[in-house]
Design a protein around this nucleic acid. Structure first.
Lengths: 222, 222
DNA sequence: CTCCGCATTAACCAATTGGTCAAACTACTT
DNA sequence: AAGTAGTTTGACCAATTGGTTAATGCGGAG
């Protein structure tokens, strides 16, 4: 096992990447997503990281801090990409296709994130505030309200042009996100109900990736 | 405090409704939905029921059994109504409107159920099996596969008639359920992002109840 | 009235679990 | 070689928590 203590950061007090810290973070990520913050055990995380339990407290003061770090990491991954596209200058149709594509790409990478985030934010109200604060500092000062406002303008323009039927920006966005995210959030549920295994789910998602853009755009048609 | 021991069931060995048992069940419902199974504390449930902790073990052997009872109760409430409508003999459009209406009615009654169910089923694989078993015995032997098959036939008929564009039954159903359920599952998240309070959310849902049927049916139009 | 059985409780127990600490280890500097 | 600062560990601690038990309450049958 390689043990190069702080190899690339001699003078950096808060080095973000000692090998072990990263391993702990990864292990915590895995366990927290699988068991939830309340159900996760520090010992399990230590075991999965292959380190002593005390090290978790050495790097992160306590369970709460560690859980916060993981939540931010996961939520950031999920929400990081969307605002990026929601403000692009392309037309509405291109934007819709782009958002769906990016969402599916992101969700394929971390398919269990939605259920975890939903569960967390439902069980601990603090997580809500934590998330808005994170969203504020995420992009270059673009608040959700601003993103929503920009989207509304683009929608209104299309409505006036007769390209789409009237719809409010919040409903537009929630529709879009619901159709993308829900199948992942409810994955075990869908698999159980429809009798799908992992391969079946992947196939289902593949079909969805192809058909969803047209479905959504068709719904907007006047 | 009224203490009428088993008032209306003198000879019923497994009386489902001694006053206290119901109170415990309600308290457990509240706590489990708020904190999740792992995060819930037996003492909290006892407190909320206004009862000694030992009574929980008297009526339900242990935490696991109690959690199972609540999960079945909640999941049953959510899924009970849908199969009921999915096999109705009405046309596709009427069925869509009916499902959406019923879903919103059911979700208005237990708005935190989706997040709870998603969180639970994500954290404990056992819950998945538990759910399929429950769905099997729920209706008159109508398996999910049968419901899905009946839906597929109805869809195919409409496609041949040129009423709607081609779509598979699973995608059809997942689209419909996603649009209905997700906003409730992600309620705290949506409220946080869009800066809505409880009243704002209710208003959002009201607008959604009105606009969603046409949105969905429009998406199906050829 | 008294006895019996279910309901309820206070006190207690054992195991789990988050967290601490001092000792040991490791690489680097002098 | 010795010292030093950061890192890692085993052992331990205190609090929490699910679960048990013996005693008490209480209503109805005899």
């Amino acid at each position: 096992m390689v043990k190069t203590k702080r190899p690339a950061s001699p003078a950096n007090a808060l080095a973000p990447d000692s090998d072990t810290e990263q391993r702990i973070l990864d292990a915590a990520h895995s366990v927290f997503i699988r068991k939830g913050t309340a159900g996760a055990r520090m010992q399990d995380i230590a075991d999965e990281a292959g380190v002593n339990k005390a090290l978790l407290h050495y790097y992160f003061r306590n369970k709460s801090r560690l859980a916060d770090a993981i939540f931010q990491r996961v939520a950031g991954g999920v929400f990081g990409r969307i605002a990026q596209v929601a403000r692009s200058e392309s037309g509405l149709e291109a934007m819709v296709r782009s958002i769906i594509a990016i969402y599916f790409e992101q969700l394929a990478r971390s398919p269990y994130a939605p259920a975890y985030v939903i569960g967390e934010i439902n069980q601990d109200p603090e997580r809500g505030r934590q998330l808005v604060q994170m969203l504020s500092g995420l992009r270059d000062g673009a608040t959700p309200a601003m993103v929503l406002g920009a989207l509304q303008q683009k929608i209104d323009a299309s409505i006036r042009a007769g390209t789409i039927r009237p719809i409010s920006a919040p409903q537009f966005l929630v529709n879009l996100v619901s159709l993308c995210v829900f199948p992942f959030a409810a994955r075990p549920l869908l698999c159980a109900i429809m009798g799908m295994d992992d391969a079946g789910f992947v196939a289902f998602i593949e079909e969805r990736k192809r058909t969803l853009p047209d479905f959504f755009l068709n719904a907007l048609r006047p």
